[in-house]
Structures are given as structure tokens and as C-alpha cells.
């Protein structure tokens, strides 16, 4: 992503607050932040695609939270008919017996229930990757960009190293060594993906640091923390969200890819492990597409929602991209 100059200075007009006393400052800080959010939301909600993304993610989050109530069966409970495992049962709308909405797997698990429960790891991986990548990236960027000098140099060389690591091979190596589990997938994704937000946000911080109101605050003796949290952080917030939203996508796709290769968490059902099992049992060859297509669609829906929200933020940060301006 190219560097972005000319981001709107959302907070320039809030300059005067610095002179107020500390008792009010917390309340004002809260107001300041909530104004930021609501202003951004005003821009975002005009874009139907962003709303679609937000709704989809919310929907999947609800599904994940209420999975046990929505799924007719636990995800790895075998279905029996008399003494026989109900393997490869067709969906109920396709002449299947037992009333399974999407039929059963080769092992006799209910596919629909697996799909419902599969939303949990996907969202956990996606959202934690998002929060951690964007969070770490932003903190590094603020520190490097604000303090500059040697700190900046060291941090940016670390970013360079992180940029030298190919994503999927590195994640595969890490997960293989640490052991296949969701925690390790998240860890590996975060270790690699904070780099993007760190580099781009840092250059933003560099330019904001030089702006008159920041310089003015420095002159009045405001603490570093105050300057960072009041003047700089709110301005780079859209970028943080932008990279957070993209990290949802990276996290989910990486988890699916790693599972597909056979390094998924064997103790949990995720969309990625579902696809791997379907592939192992040749679901496509047997034309049982109801086992194979839905997890791919679900992954794509969540990922594209992340992208759509991210794209919305991209337009917040870079008005040149907004249509009709």
C-alpha cells in the first residue's frame, strides 16, 4: 500500500482542549474519541458495501456465540441409524434421510452443525489477528514515528526483517514447530502481519508530528503521552482500523490454508479443517458439493466483509478514492 499524504486532520480544531484542567480531561478525551468514531461512522454508513460487511460480520459473530443453540448436533457427534453410522447422507432436500440440512460427512457428522460451529475458530482467529496486528503495528508506529532517531531506526529494521518473511511458508514452519493449534496459528499470523500497519502508520505519524498543532502542544509542555493519545493517535485511527480489517482476512485465509495443508488444530472443527476433511475424502469427486461448497462460501463472506470495511476506512483516510468528489 502506498504511503498516504494529506489525510484529513480530524482533530486540528480540538486544539484548545489542552489548556483545560485534568479533572475534565478524561471526560473530554472520551468525548473526543466518541466524536471521532461517530464522524467516521457517518462516512462509513453511507457506503452500502461497508454496511453489508458490518452486518455480515455481526451475523457470523452471533452465529458463533449462539452456535450450541443453532446447531442441531454437536459438531463431532456421530449420527447413527440402528447399528449403522450414517455416512455420506444426502441433504434432506436431496432425498437424504435423517433430516440433515446439508447431509452428513464421510464420518457421519452433521455438516450443517459443523458449519455453524466452524464459525467460532474462524472469527476467533480473524478477530484476534485483527486486534493484535493492528494494535501492535499501531503502537510500534507511534513509538517509532514520534520518537524517531535510533528507536525509529531499530524498529523499522525489525519491520524490514518481518517484510522479508514469506507469509504462508513462515506460518507453516512456525505452526509445525510449535504444534498445530489455533493459538499458534494466531501467534504466527500476528508475528508476521503487524509489519504492514507499522510501516504505513509510522509514515503517517511522521507527517502528523510536524503539524503546527502538535508542535504547539509540545511548546506548551504537554507530555509525550498526552500528545500521542490526543493529537496523533486519533488521526491515525482510520488507518489502524483499515489494517485491522485486512488482518481479519489474512487471519481467516491463513488458518484455512494451514488447515488444508494438514497443520490445522485437530481438536476443533473449523471451516478450514472441514475443507481439508472434505478434500481427504474426495467430496468433490463424489459430487457431494454440499459438504465442500458451503465452508468456502462462509470463509469468503467473512473475508470479503473484512475487506469491505477496510475499503471503507481506506476512503476515510484517503478522500481521493471516494467517488464523485
Amino acid at each position: 500500500m502506498s504511503q498516504r499524504e494529506g489525510t484529513r486532520e480530524l482533530f486540528e480544531n480540538l486544539e484548545g482542549y489542552d489548556e483545560l484542567d485534568d479533572v475534565d480531561s478524561r471526560r473530554r478525551a472520551i468525548r473526543l474519541w466518541s466524536e471521532t468514531f461517530s464522524e467516521q461512522w457517518e462516512i462509513l454508513k453511507e457506503d452500502r458495501l461497508v454496511v453489508f460487511g458490518a452486518v455480515t460480520i455481526t451475523l457470523f459473530s452471533l452465529i458463533a456465540i449462539f452456535a450450541p443453540f443453532l446447531a442441531p448436533h454437536p459438531p463431532t457427534e456421530r449420527m447413527w441409524d440402528g447399528g449403522m453410522i450414517m455416512q455420506w447422507e444426502n441433504p434432506l432436500w436431496y432425498g437424504g434421510e435423517g433430516g440433515y440440512l446439508l447431509g452428513t460427512t464421510a464420518e457421519g457428522y452433521d455438516i450443517f452443525s459443523q458449519l455453524i460451529f466452524g464459525s467460532r475458530p474462524a472469527l476467533i482467529v480473524g478477530l484476534s489477528a485483527a486486534v493484535l496486528c493492528a494494535g501492535i503495528g499501531t503502537i510500534v508506529a507511534l513509538v517509532a514515528g514520534y520518537y524517531g532517531g535510533r528507536v525509529d531506526d531499530i524498529l523499522m529494521r525489525i519491520v524490514d526483517v518481518a517484510y522479508g518473511l514469506p507469509l504462508l511458508p513462515s506460518v507453516i514452519l512456525l505452526v509445525a514447530m510449535l504444534g498445530p493449534s489455533f493459538l499458534n496459528v494466531i501467534l504466527a499470523v500476528v508475528l508476521l502481519q503487524w509489519r504492514a500497519s507499522a510501516r504505513v502508520i509510522r509514515s503517517q505519524v511522521l507527517s502528523i508530528r510536524e503539524r503546527p498543532y502538535v508542535q504547539a502542544a509540545k511548546v506548551t509542555g504537554a507530555s509525550d503521552w498526552r500528545i500521542i493519545s490526543r493529537h496523533i493517535a486519533p488521526n491515525i485511527l482510520p488507518l489502524t482500523f483499515l489494517y485491522g480489517a485486512f488482518a481479519i482476512a489474512t487471519g481467516i485465509l491463513t488458518e484455512a490454508g494451514v488447515s488444508f495443508i494438514g497443520l490445522g488444530d485437530p481438536s476443533q472443527v473449523s471451516w478450514g479443517t472441514m475443507l481439508q476433511t472434505a478434500h481427504t475424502y474426495n467430496a468433490m469427486y463424489h459430487q457431494t458439493w454440499w459438504w465442500f461448497i458451503p465452508p468456502g462460501i462462509c470463509i469468503a463472506l467473512v473475508v470479503i466483509s473484512g475487506f469491505l470495511i477496510g475499503r471503507g476506512y481506506e476512503e476515510v483516510t484517503n478522500p481521493a478514492l471516494r467517488g464523485n468528489n
Partner: peptide, 25 residues
């Protein structure tokens, strides 16, 4: 072999799942 799940079986699957049918088999 008749599948006869006993009471102690429910423990395995019931945890936290209010609606889920625990012992379909």
C-alpha cells in the same frame, strides 16, 4: 451391536450446550 448409551455418557457432550441433543444415538 446395539448402541446403548448410558447416563454417564451425557457428560461428554452436554457441557454448555443447552439445546443440542446430547445423545442422538
Amino acid at each position: 451391536t446395539p448402541i446403548d448409551r448410558r447416563k454417564f455418557l451425557k457428560r461428554a457432550t452436554a457441557a454448555g450446550t443447552g439445546v443440542a441433543i446430547t445423545a442422538a444415538a
